[in-house]
Write a protein that binds this DNA or RNA. Structure first.
Lengths: 129, 129
DNA sequence: CGCATAACTTACATTTATGTTAGTACTTGA
DNA sequence: TCAAGTACTAACATAAATGTAAGTTATGCG
């Protein structure tokens, strides 16, 4: 289940419904969403590849994050009626329009994150695949 | 208390310790942090003014968010040894360097948030003070 | 004295996010 | 027949974020 009514929910709706910055943060702020965005930036990936590239995330959580991003219009899910099943995820036009957002967040992190290499800012976990 | 050890914490450290984008999101991603950043962008504010400008946040949560931002180096806390006490919060140099980040997040939200006015993107809750 | 203000803190309670484990349906290949 | 691959779902469990209500310390004011 999800939530129905609470101060917590009311505050979230108040903020996300009025603040552009908070709204954007809400869409990309999940634990694994940056990693997913970085991976899909290079093109479509099927579920099994995405999962293999993220050994630390459990299947349930990965699916949850993908579903949320799909509901928010950032990615699309394409099912191929084959056997074995094939499902490909890719960025939508809206998802691709996040590129400058990702770049600025990454640039700031590169300048300020303790231990950042400061060069070729990226999401190094990517090297896993 | 805080957390000591868990898969959750390990994943958080793994990601924030390696992904510049995730690190940045972690610093500004709290529920009330965008609102606080918007307010302090106009200059220093004392605690009571900050609180009055955010009627929906409880004192405990406001303090928590301020403490985290202070620990992360985004804001500074200046105590004036007066009676009644006076404590002023303001952006640090690092906090001010978030301006382009805020602008890009706001611009994207302005373009994509349902119901966004699309003009003069900002955090309208500001009008409360 | 009693109340008000400032900037909190404490103890407690709830909601939400994240994680674990096992199981599903279908088919191909050994 | 038995394991393996695919893309999940369900039931359960824990961790973290957020919220509520009251209390604290110190002083000035009427």
């Amino acid at each position: 289940m999800r939530k129905q009514s609470s101060t917590n929910l009311e505050n979230e709706m108040l903020i996300n419904g009025n603040c552009d910055m908070a709204y954007t943060l809400d869409l990309i702020g999940g634990r694994w969403k940056p990693s997913i965005l970085w991976r899909l930036a290079y093109g479509a990936l099927r579920y099994s590849d995405l999962r293999r590239s993220l050994p630390a995330v459990s299947e349930r959580i990965l699916i949850l994050q993908l579903r949320e991003m799909e509901a928010d219009g950032l990615i699309s899910r394409k099912v191929y009626p084959e056997v074995p099943p094939r499902v490909e995820y890719q960025l939508t036009e809206v998802g691709r329009s996040l590129e400058p957002v990702i770049n600025v967040l990454t640039a700031w992190g590169s300048e300020n994150r303790p231990g950042s290499e400061r060069k070729t800012p990226r999401c190094p976990l990517l090297t896993i695949i």
